[in-house]
Simulated scan of single mutants.
Amino acid sequence: MDLPLVVGVDGSEPSLRAVDWAADEAALRGAPLRLVYASLWERYEGSSLAKDLGKPSEQVMAEDIVRTAAQRAHLRQSGVKISTEVLPEEPEYALVHESRSASALVLGTRGRSGFVDMLLGSVSLAVAAHAACPVIVLRGSHDNQVRAGDHGHVVLGVGEHGTDSAALRFAVQEARLRGATLDAVRAWRCPAHETTDHPLLAGEPARLHEQHAAEVLADALKDAPAGVKVRPRTVEGPARRLLLAASHEADLLVVGARRNPEHLGLQLGRVAHAVLHHSACPVAVVPEQA
């Protein structure tokens, strides 16, 4: 049984854009699409029902939202199997629960309750930090129009533990589906205390750090399938800045986020947190076991 691609919908423009993108992604994968609306309307409306409808007014609105989203997805990709669900739960909890039986979760940057100037909504941030599957947040295309990727590049941030990386496997799959080049980026920096003014040693610490980055990258990519064009890149500088720069010429930016079951807080890391807030293209955060 193919796991569905799950989209969190709430009727906002960012979530409708996520529906469009996810419909295209589901068609690429040959996967079913599941549209989920979650809200604790019962907390606020209790048993007070809309007498003429026999349901809480929030539930009526929710059912209309998922029905409209399903129609939109069908018009965009008529061959994709679509299901919908309305859940009386906190959105963060419901979507994290959905992630346990999803191939990936797709979210907009913010929902109906989000402030216009917020970089990333609290629901998207919380789900990206705790989901059991990859979470794709639809950054970029801020005119709310989804277009087919035209850059032909998927960018992957390769961390220190790149070998057998879930993020690498996900990025390879996405590059293969799109017929895109996989740009595997490994950032490196030479700590200031390791520099030297001695003319015979000038540049030696930097060379060693660059060499180590190249070795980590080569080891991570050694089993990459031959059918995907891979472009390894070692670049000096902060990983956050380098990946954000690369996002301007990418169709998707993929980063890993290490999960530690003993920690209860946000489990994203500084790089994932930064690209979720500032990337110029959609971002996929892929959980990695610590």
Rank of each mutant, 00 (worst) to 15 (best):
C190G: 01
S48L: 14
R240Y: 01
R139H: 10
D164H: 14
R270K: 11
L5E: 09
V106Y: 12
R186E: 05
R43V: 15
C281D: 02
V154L: 08
M1R: 06
V60L: 07
G114S: 06
L201F: 15
A62D: 10
A274C: 03
R231V: 12
S15N: 09
G121V: 02
L208D: 10
V7G: 10
E174S: 11
V36R: 08
K51D: 08
T181A: 07
I136K: 04
D219A: 14
V158M: 00
L177E: 06
V228I: 12
L244W: 05
K51V: 13
V235Q: 13
A69C: 12
V6C: 12
L3G: 03
V286L: 00
H212N: 04
V96W: 05
T163W: 00
R186A: 07
E13H: 09
R231F: 03
A250G: 00
R241T: 11
L125E: 13
G54H: 05
E204N: 00
A180R: 01
K55C: 02
L87T: 15
R233N: 01
H278M: 13
A218W: 03
H97I: 12
Q145M: 11
E288D: 04
L168H: 00
E249Q: 12
L182F: 06
E90T: 14
T234E: 08
G159A: 03
E215V: 09
L33D: 10
T195W: 14
R231C: 04
P287I: 08
V228G: 06
V271D: 01
R139I: 03
R43I: 11
L244E: 09
H142S: 10
E160N: 02
E63K: 10
R189P: 02
A22M: 09
V106C: 07
D20G: 09
L200S: 07
D24T: 11
V230M: 00
S47M: 13
G227T: 08
L208H: 14
R241Q: 11
D64Y: 09
E42K: 13
P205A: 06
H97W: 09
H198Q: 10
G203E: 08
V116C: 01
V155C: 09
P32G: 01
R43G: 08
T234C: 12
E194V: 05
K81H: 14
S15A: 15
V86P: 02
V230F: 04
L264E: 14
L120G: 05
L120Y: 02
R258F: 09
G46K: 03
H273S: 08
A148E: 12
Y37K: 06
P32N: 06
P287C: 01
L33G: 08
G54D: 00
L217F: 03
V254M: 06
T195R: 12
L268D: 05
N144R: 13
S103P: 01
E63W: 11
A126D: 12
E25S: 08
S103L: 04
G265M: 10
G11H: 05
Q71Y: 14
Q145Y: 07
R169C: 02
T181L: 04
G256W: 03
A166E: 06
V86E: 07
V36N: 10
A167S: 13
A280K: 15
